[in-house]
């Protein structure tokens, strides 16, 4: 098999696998949103503060998923392994 084709195919598989990082972020954001809704239901007057904190914490949780996205984008568009073949 052509070594270039092999490297590019493996990079595409790796790019797909890197997106699995978003599983944890999805679970975490779901738990955070669930708890936020619970606390709003218990104390409706604290809605503004809880929503602000929820948005900020969701953004921080999302960072891990974004790291996975960036790894797969690097593998797809600026592949470091293809350059080593030449």
């Amino acid at each position: 098999m052509d070594s270039m084709a092999f490297v590019m195919g493996c990079s595409a598989i790796g790019a797909g696998l890197a997106i699995f990082a978003s599983i944890g972020a999805g679970i975490g954001q779901g738990m955070a949103a669930g708890r936020a809704i619970e606390s709003i239901a218990r104390q409706p007057e604290s809605r503004g503060t809880v929503m602000t904190t929820l948005f900020i914490s969701c953004a921080i949780i999302e960072t891990t998923a974004i790291y996975g996205l960036i790894i797969s984008l690097i593998l797809l568009m600026a592949n470091p392994f293809v350059g080593q073949l030449q």
Partner: peptide, 16 residues
């Protein structure tokens, strides 16, 4: 790194 990658990843994800 986390501050810049968060903004960059979100917006570039939208573009793609």
């Amino acid at each position: 790194i986390s501050l810049s990658f968060r903004l960059f990843g979100n917006i570039l994800g939208g573009v793609i």
